[in-house]
Design a protein around this nucleic acid. Structure first.
Lengths: 203, 203
DNA sequence: GTCTATAGAGGGATAGAC
DNA sequence: GTCTATCCCTCTATAGAC
């Protein structure tokens, strides 16, 4: 095979990354060992080090993998609707679809960034890019809605609302609470789109 | 000395718990080792096991210690003001005072619960009591403001807002963002107190 | 009650056979 | 490229001297 890695090698690499991504979500980065990943992906432990020199490098690749998924997701939302308000509402749809996971393991992005915040500054900075993708995309939609300079604040407000909701939903494993708050979030998105939402505050 | 433990012993026990509580906040529970605690409190490692049989038991005591602190805090707020709205605003004062810590390590309660959510169901349930203290106290204040059945939803809304804000503030180490959102939070508290805040949503 | 020494398990990482 | 064997370190926890 030409290139730096054979097709088989690339497949294995992807399988490791996908398995690691899921385990990092369910167990956390620090508590997920190579043994866990090797067992879940059913291949020998030492095999890794052909693909990744360190665990940190694996995390980098997991973040890259998730970044690609996120970027594809927001692109799809942009393609699906012309109205920015409807696009933003896709975020609520997504929460609804992953509600069971959220109640069990929390937000896959928020919990990772939170964990890495206490472990390694460099790794957290990397994972933070995941937030950036969502916030940047939201800002674009809000600018299209005519929110101008408020767009950045409002984008962060929406992400912050979601973080708060998912944190409590996970803490209490409360699906009903999550469902209710997602409905509230939809209302808030509608209000923001209609410029009925006040989030400015006196300096 | 009479009782189950001498005064000296009780002092040591407290010093361990205080040191552990701080390290759990800064480094996380899983990443804090007995060596870390022993070093920070400057006493030999093996010494612990006279006081605590396991690390989980230590966490239990740390949670108990923090619960006492939290309960004392909300009691003080209740004693300080007669107006429930002013009492609730104390929460914003507290965030302001601990802003530097929040930007560095996040919310001490939220990050602990989030971490334990991926580690141990039992330990998370214990730590969740920390949320309960705040939510229960907020609900009482909101009931006093006449919010009736909405009090529970609004109490959780406030805690959720704080979780979202602290998560983003920590992720971006952004003190300006945190200061801004605390000001917004004050406005929201004011609006809630004046019944101007709509959080109901259609079922 | 206090401290040392160490067991025992599991982690990340490496060397080298195939 | 793939897999085994193993090193070394750190962690929790224990045994037992003082």
């Amino acid at each position: 095979m030409s290139g730096q890695q054979s097709r088989r090698g690339a497949e294995n690499r992807l399988r490791i990354v996908e398995t690691a991504s899921e385990l990092f979500y369910h167990k956390g980065y620090g508590r997920t060992s190579f043994s866990d990943i090797a067992h879940a992906a059913s291949f020998p432990r030492g095999n890794f080090y052909y693909y990744f020199k360190t665990k940190d490098e694996l995390l980098d690749e997991v973040v890259e993998y998730r970044l690609q998924g996120l970027r594809a997701m927001v692109s799809e939302w942009s393609a699906l609707h012309d109205d920015p308000a409807e696009r933003i509402a896709c975020l609520a749809d997504m929460l609804e679809q992953s509600a069971d996971d959220i109640v069990t393991w929390g937000c896959p992005i928020g919990t990772l960034i939170s964990e890495l915040g206490k472990a390694d500054e460099r790794l957290q900075a990397r994972a933070r890019e995941l937030f950036d993708v969502i916030i940047d995309w939201l800002r674009e939609q809000l600018e299209a809605l005519g929110h101008g300079l408020q767009s950045d604040v409002l984008a962060k407000l929406l992400v912050s609302r979601i973080q708060g909701i998912t944190t409590l939903a996970q803490a209490y494993h409360d699906r009903e609470y999550l469902d209710y708050e997602i409905r509230c979030l939809r209302e808030e998105i509608r209000r923001i789109a209609n410029r009925e939402h006040a989030h400015e505050c006196r300096e």
